[in-house]
Structures are given as C-alpha cells and as structure tokens.
Design a protein around this nucleic acid. Structure first.
Lengths: 144, 144
DNA sequence: GTGATTGTTGCAAAAATTGGCAATAAGAGG
DNA sequence: CCTCTTATTGCCAATTTTTGCAACAATCAC
C-alpha cells in the first residue's frame, strides 16, 4: 500500500504492535476518505469490504492509532468525533460557529504560541492538530 | 447561592431557559468540586443529595451549560471528559504526557496566537479553554 | 517450513450516552 | 393566588462505546 504518507507498518512494529489486515484496512479507509472521517463512516466502508470486521475492532484500532500519533482526532462540535491521517507537517482547523465552515491553517501561528509557552513555562507543547472555534470573516462582517 | 462567580440564573433566564432545582444542584456540585470534575463524579455527588435525579438530566444540563458558555469541558486524554465552571478570564491547561501533571496558564500566550490568526485569516478565534499536551520541564530535563 | 509465544480479533455482555414521551413544574399574565 | 403555556424532568428504550474472554493468527526462533 504505497499511498501512505508514512511507514505505518514500521511504526506499528517498532512500537511492539502487530500489523493485521484489519488495521491495514482501517488505515486504508482513513486514507481514501481523504479529509475528516467519522468512525461510523469508516465502519460502514469496511463492512462493504469485509463484513466480519467487528465494530469494537475499529474502536480499538482508532484509539491505538491516535495514541501512536498516526491518526489525529478532533471533536467538530457537532458531537461526532472525526479522525484523520496525521500529516508530517501538522495543520489545524478554524471552525466557524455561525456557518460551520472549516478553514485549514498551517502551523505558523500555532508555532508562535508554542514557543511563547516554552519560553514562559518551560513546557514543550505538542500541538498535533487543533480545532479552534470562532467566527469567520464572512460571518463577522455584515454582508454588503 | 452566593458562591457563583457569575449570575447563572440570570443568564439561564435571559436565554429563555428555566432555573430548576436540578440545574442549580448540578452547578453547585461543579462549584464545590473546585477544579475539573467528571460527569461520573457529579452524578455520584448528586445521588447523595437527591437520589431521584436522573443521569440523563445531568447529561442534558451539562450539555446546555457548555453551549451557554457557563461551563467548560475538556478531554484530558485519558478518555474521560472533564467539566469546570467557566471563569470570566479564560485560562488553559498544559498536560504533561509523561507524568500527567497539569499546569494552569493564563490567557496571554493564547491571546497572541488568536491575534495572529485574526491578522492572517480574519478569523476571530474563541478560545475558551484549551487543553494542550506536551512534556513539562521536569520530565524533559534528565533529573540530576 | 514448524512450533511456540503472545498480541488481536470477534463475539457477547456490560456500561455509557442519547432520545422519545407523558407527567410535572417554572415562569408569565392576569 | 390561580391559570395557562411550555420547558424540563424522570422513566424507559434505543443507541453507542467499552470490556472480558476464548479462539485465532502475526511474529519470532529454530
């Protein structure tokens, strides 16, 4: 599976975990779905490929991937948790409270904050994937 | 109940919601527990005061308080979600991945980031209560 | 390959969270 | 104070998420 951005199998093995077809399929599903994907969507997709995969396996795999940093999870605010393959260069999202639209931003602004915190508190922040709420420019300004 | 930092009842009423004994008791529990409190802890405490309060009522009340901004919720990373009375001056937490210790920080560093994002994207971030993971100074340095 | 070791899986049961609904009670208006 | 309106509650059922465990299979040593 060459569409992975990282050597997931190697990372799994290096951490002492096993590479199973279920885990590979779950990673594949995450990759193919592209952007943010919910657990329900992943499970549905897997069902079509291999109906014997249990939902608890998906839960466990996703939790493992998140703790390993392979996958990044975020709560959209609508209650559902979304999962996404972690990129090498982390990025973040601005979610508008008004229109619900999401905007990706890069790491720069976050990096600034992380450095300030490091200076002040000696704490090394690991900001993989932030989800920031607020009001986007379009909604903030009265439409003219 | 004068130990509230804000006029919760007024805020509830102003938003068209009713002030019920259940909601007051849940707010009291949040206040008295001080720092971060889990839903389970709140429910346990309420049971001793009034065993007729249903768990679903606690879920609903907490969800309402969060959307109203009266209460702030954060995922510690250990799976459990924690709730806390929102302060007027928002603050944030640094959670160490190694030792699990939490450190409170004030809004300054976050404010900086929010301003940078506003400058660059026109997006007005609403950062009520952030939970940042990383490595604290004690764990990062080899103990000497 | 073959066998041993042990992490993983699927299943089922348990626990947590959410949703529907009739009865109740908070708030408004007399 | 009484009545009316309707948000809220408690109860129950449905749904989602987690957990325990025996069978299975990935990995390693040979």
């Amino acid at each position: 599976m060459s569409h992975y951005t990282r050597d997931f199998e190697g990372i799994l093995r290096a951490a002492g975990y096993r590479v199973t077809p279920q885990r590979i399929q779950i990673l594949d599903a995450l990759c193919d779905e592209g952007g943010h994907t919910s657990l329900a969507a992943i499970y549905l997709r897997l069902q079509r490929i291999d109906p014997t995969i249990d939902k608890s396996t998906v839960y466990r795999a996703l939790k493992l991937f998140v703790t390993l940093g392979l996958v990044v999870s975020a709560d959209n605010g609508d209650g559902e948790v979304y999962y996404e393959i972690a990129r090498v260069q982390p990025h973040h999202h601005l979610v508008c409270r008004q229109c619900g639209q999401q905007q990706e931003i890069d790491h720069d602004a976050i990096q600034l904050m992380a450095e300030a915190i490091y200076q002040q508190y000696g704490f090394q922040v690991n900001t993989d994937h932030l989800m920031l709420n607020g009001i986007c420019a379009g909604c903030r300004l009265p439409h003219q």
